[in-house]
Amino acid sequence: MSELSRLDLNILDAVAQLHETPKGAYNIRKNAAGISRRSTENIIIQPKQNKPGIDIIIRENTKNESVHIPVIITETGVNDLVYNDFYIGDNSDVLIVAGCGIHNSGGEKSEHDGIHIFHIGKNARVKYVEKHYAEGQGTGEKVLNPTTEIYMDKNSYCEMEMVQIKGVDSTIRETSAHLKAGAALIILERLMTHGKQSARSNMVINLDEEDSSAQIISRSVAKDFSEQVFYPKAVGNSRCKAHVQCDSIIMDQAKIRSIPEISANHRDAEIIHEAAIGRINNDQLLKLQTLGLSENESEQIIISCFLK
């Protein structure tokens, strides 16, 4: 990765924990163009012909392999729209690490909108990790609007960890999923907003066939004047189980709306939701202070553990 600067590497570390060229297949996109790519025997990455983006094709029975597809934006005024389609073969077991980091030190808006579509084959297992992070002292906005569509075939398993670490001025996340028989989906969403940032996360999980299951766990911290809206929806169209949990810590002058919706179109659908918004508990702060931490240190530990 000799063409990458120290700044690029810092961003790659923040969004994908990459310190060197990843093992296995990868595609690195910088300022709206692919700059480095490798396919392997079982994982083919190819650019799309008619629009920006890549197809990631994972062969059947591919086990214990990984794909890294980080995106970095280091220029101001970049508007990057990209379509990435994942075709994950039957019986495979893979790790996919995505993520986008923006360094915008200029005065114009930089935006990355990643549209990811997952086709997960029968009995396949996928772990997907996506981290979003932005930095830079400029006045230009840093915007990330990811769209994620997931189609899960019979008895497949997918765990998605979607994290917005800090620095993103505005985000609208759209996530949808359709689950066939026996498919299991776990979504862990972690979000922190500060300053005047705003974040909205809409999710619709359709449990279409019998014995499908979904667990959505959303944890967020809103600081300063930031605003967050969560709208996760689980729809049971068959015998299925789903659990939606939204948990937020609110601080300073922030505002949070949490609207979990559960909907059943079948009498054997079991769907539960829980939602809570509250400030940091005083008993927690006092306990950590009795262990020698200052109030500020205690607050930081509570937040970082909550979002871990």
Partner: peptide, 21 residues
């Protein structure tokens, strides 16, 4: 409280706090 903790005073609460994560 923090300064007293640094002097070597410790306290086990009757109703301990719970922490997510």
């Amino acid at each position: 409280v923090t300064d007293r903790a640094h002097l070597g005073i410790g306290y086990a609460f009757q109703h301990p706090a719970r922490f997510k994560g």
